[in-house]
Simulated scan of single mutants.
Amino acid sequence: MRKFAYCMIALTLVGCSREFVESIYDVNYEPTNRFAKNLAQLPGQFEKDTAALDALINSFSGNIEKRWGSKEIKVAGKSNYVKYIDNYLSRAEVNFQEGKILVETVSPTDPEGHLRRAIVTTLLTPDDPMSVDLFSSQDIELKGQPFLYNQVLDQDKQPIQWGWRANRFADYLIANQLKVKQVDFKKAYYVEIPMVEDQIQIRSYQYANIVQKASRKYDIPEDLIYAIIKTESSFNPYAVSWANAYGLMQVVPKTAGRDVYKLVKNKSGQPTPEYLFNPENNIDTGTAYFHILKTRYLKDVNDPTSLEYSMISAYNGGTGGVLNTFSKDRKRAMSDLNSLQPNQVYWALTKKHPNSESRRYLEKVTKYKKEFNMPK
Rank of each mutant, 00 (worst) to 15 (best):
N244L: 05
D184M: 14
E47A: 01
F35H: 12
L323S: 10
L298T: 00
Y189G: 05
P31Y: 01
W164N: 12
S136H: 08
F35R: 13
T272A: 15
N278L: 10
S79K: 03
A288L: 06
L148Y: 04
L115F: 09
R296T: 14
T50W: 14
S131I: 01
K294N: 15
V183H: 13
Y346H: 08
H353M: 03
G15W: 05
F290C: 14
C16S: 15
T350F: 11
K262I: 01
E47Y: 00
Q161E: 12
S233F: 02
P194V: 01
A92C: 11
E22P: 06
K299M: 03
K367M: 14
W164H: 15
K367N: 14
L276R: 06
G286M: 13
Y297C: 01
T231S: 14
T109Q: 06
N33M: 12
S137F: 06
P146L: 06
D154Y: 13
P375Q: 02
Y275M: 02
I312W: 12
D154I: 12
P129A: 07
S306Q: 07
K83T: 00
L276P: 04
L42V: 05
G269C: 07
G320R: 11
Y275I: 00
Q177F: 13
F169G: 05
Y84L: 05
E222S: 13
T105M: 11
V152C: 04
V322F: 09
P129M: 02
Y315S: 04
N95S: 01
G257R: 11
K254L: 07
L307N: 07
Y88I: 11
A175Q: 13
L248S: 09
V301E: 04
K157P: 06
D154A: 11
M8L: 05
L337H: 11
I312H: 10
R117F: 03
L307K: 15
S268V: 10
K213Q: 14
S136T: 06
S23Q: 09
Y309R: 13
I101V: 10
V345A: 10
H114F: 14
P253E: 05
L56K: 11
D336H: 10
T305S: 07
G77Y: 00
S204L: 02
P342M: 09
V94D: 01
K217E: 07
T50Y: 15
L42D: 01
D127R: 12
V106L: 05
F35G: 14
V152N: 00
N167T: 09
T319F: 10
L142V: 11
Y172T: 15
L323F: 12
C16L: 11
A288N: 03
N167E: 15
Q199E: 00
L153S: 01
N236H: 02
G99F: 05
D284W: 12
F60E: 05
T32S: 12
A5R: 13
D219S: 10
Q344D: 15
D336Q: 12
H114K: 11
Y246W: 15
E141P: 03
L224Q: 07
Y261T: 05
